[in-house]
């Protein structure tokens, strides 16, 4: 389990970073989304992987980490998902507006002398 998930995280992160370094704004937006998956999973995995562990307490009960999943990384990731969404939206719109203003979708706002 751990091996597969960490490979997955690595692949997501590598793809995301590669796209982050590319010259077109759309590539960067997609790259950021991929990277945020990777980061979310990474943070989530810090609570260790638990299959079939109850995430919700018994009413009136007191939980402990032996029987329940770790809620802290989950709360962090929940926040991160929403913020990640906001970030994607913002970058997307900045991308569109920049394209409207400058006429190019290059990250520098102008085409390089010779194409990449």
């Amino acid at each position: 389990m751990e091996l597969i998930l960490s490979a997955g995280i690595g692949a997501l992160a590598a793809s995301g970073i590669y796209l982050l370094l590319r010259p077109r704004t759309y590539q960067v937006v997609i790259g950021l989304s991929l990277l945020s998956y990777a980061v979310n999973l990474f943070i989530f995995s810090m609570g260790r992987l638990r299959v079939n562990a109850p995430p919700v307490l018994e009413p009136g009960g007191v939980g402990d980490l032996l029987r329940y999943t770790d809620p802290v990384p989950q709360a962090l990731v929940l926040t991160a998902i929403v913020i990640g969404f906001a970030m994607t939206a913002l970058f997307l719109v900045v991308l569109l507006v920049s394209r409207g203003f400058t006429g190019t979708d290059h990250v520098d706002g102008r085409e390089p002398p010779r194409g990449d």
């Binding site: 091996l3 690595g10 692949a11 590598a14 970073i17 992987l49």
Partner: peptide, 15 residues
Amino acid sequence: TMAGGGVALVAYTVM
């Protein structure tokens, strides 16, 4: 690739 590999390695180690 290096960055991705590094992240995977750290994640695996912690997990």
